[in-house]
Design a protein around this nucleic acid. Structure first.
Lengths: 145, 145
DNA sequence: CGGGAATGATGAACCTGGCTCACGGTGTAG
DNA sequence: CTACACCGTGAGCCAGGTTCATCATTCCCG
């Protein structure tokens, strides 16, 4: 019999390990977690207004200003005028930013492949399914509250 | 076929959800994440020097000073003289601190039970085993680097 | 036993990542 | 044209981290 709290601990343990790996990546690339996160979102969504980045990252718009300032200073993104709305700016990755996004993706993929390399496909499927159900259970739990 | 990166994403997703739940707990109890974490460790290890807390939390000793200051101000812990080493202080939970630690444990256990309630025991066992193997794989990966 | 090195906690100064509130510029619906 | 809504940002705050320097104590070795 496996005790649920022990399983939860394992999940959290794995998450912190992945976080450690991300930190290593950041050290190498000179990015911080939040800026890497912003770049990640930018890579997924393409050039975006700061508002949309704020809601995607689930932080305040003011905070995005600061992150974009930092990424601008390090040459990863630039602020381009929005083609139709003169209030907004389009945060756009530079060549350096694109490269960082690509490395981020590759690092993520490589980590995932290495982590699960030893797990047979059928067990990985069970694993993923259980995760899905658990996430769903969580969502239901949050709604009730 | 389940793609490894997608599985990794699910793990991280679940971890952030759990993090959200922890944040809710903090709001209710007036604690912050780091202080709750310190209390958690304190509950597991019993009265400790700040040094040992620092290494358990993996942060600088200086930082622990600040966290203990905060927890002291909110009445969760007190600094007691170390019985044999007059340089050190023993960070000790007060009655209020003990209560918070108990609530922390209960909340954690309840969450785990609710999350995995719907998962049959055999599948949970596979899940836990896969997690263990993955964590081990990770440790091996880190060593090589 | 005595003196130099290690250790435990903290003050000072700094950075990042968050937040809110206020404000100026722009868009848009009446 | 006027009012309202929305985008970005300045100002100011807090928590959580860091390093470096300092002081008291402990420990160890000659």
């Amino acid at each position: 019999m496996v005790s649920p709290p022990a399983v939860l601990d394992r999940v959290l343990h794995l998450a912190t390990l992945v976080g450690t790996d991300l930190a290593r990546f950041e050290d190498e690339s000179g990015l911080t977690t939040s800026r890497a996160h912003l770049l990640w979102v930018l890579g997924a969504a393409g050039p975006s207004t700061q508002q949309s980045l704020a809601s995607a990252l689930n932080v305040s718009a003011r905070n995005v200003t600061g992150l974009v300032d930092g990424l601008g200073a390090s040459g990863h993104v630039s602020r381009e005028p929005h083609p139709t709305d003169r209030r907004a700016t389009l945060v756009t990755p530079t060549a350096k930013g694109e490269r960082a996004i690509r490395e981020l993706r590759e690092s993520h993929e490589q980590l995932a492949r290495q982590l699960f390399a030893h797990v047979p496909a059928d067990r990985l499927a069970v694993f993923a399914a259980t995760l899905d159900e658990t996430i769903t259970a969580f969502a239901r739990l949050m709604e009730e509250t």
